[in-house]
């Protein structure tokens, strides 16, 4: 990762910015300029909810160069509310605390800390949805 590339990716990495087809309303992540569904080239930017569920997951026991922190972490195929699927790392999860169907939400986390030019790269990861205690809303 380098600085210009990182700057270009920030809307997607920080805010899950996607593209929605103005003709058929299908949402695409990553953004694309032509709709895979209907072929229209009329797209508008849209921000995803970051709320979804786990379709599949895998535990990585080997990492790529620069990602040693990821050894032992979980990767998941996630389907968001909008029907969009993406692959991302999971975080804040106990070793056996994940299953297929688990509800997850996006959080912004460090992806790597030793990229080129001393960059610290942040981006989306997903964690299990935190359950609110019953009655917590009323007390506050």
């Amino acid at each position: 990762m380098n600085l210009p590339r990182y700057r270009r990716l920030q809307p997607a990495f920080y805010r899950l910015q996607a593209a929605r087809c103005t003709a058929c309303r299908q949402v695409h992540f990553p953004s694309r300029t032509r709709c895979l569904g209907c072929g229209s080239a009329s797209m508008e930017p849209v921000r995803l909810s970051g709320q979804g569920r786990v379709l599949s997951f895998a535990r990585m026991l080997h990492a790529a160069r620069g990602f040693q922190d990821s050894v032992g972490s979980l990767t998941a195929l996630i389907e968001l509310r909008e029907g969009v699927r993406l692959v991302a790392q999971l975080t804040d999860v106990e070793p056996d605390g994940i299953g297929i169907g688990q509800e997850v939400e996006m959080v912004l986390r460090r992806l790597r800390s030793d990229a080129e030019q001393g960059l610290i790269v942040y981006g989306y990861k997903f964690r299990p949805v935190l359950k609110r205690q019953a009655g917590a809303q009323a007390q506050s």
Partner: peptide, 26 residues
């Protein structure tokens, strides 16, 4: 894989295949 949306997130090629294997088993 997709450099910006898979590899840049530290997701290995084996992990992507593992997602498919678990989904298939399930």
């Amino acid at each position: 894989a997709d450099a910006d949306y898979e590899a840049a997130h530290g997701i290995t090629f084996t992990a992507l295949n593992a997602l498919l294997m678990r989904l298939y088993m399930e």
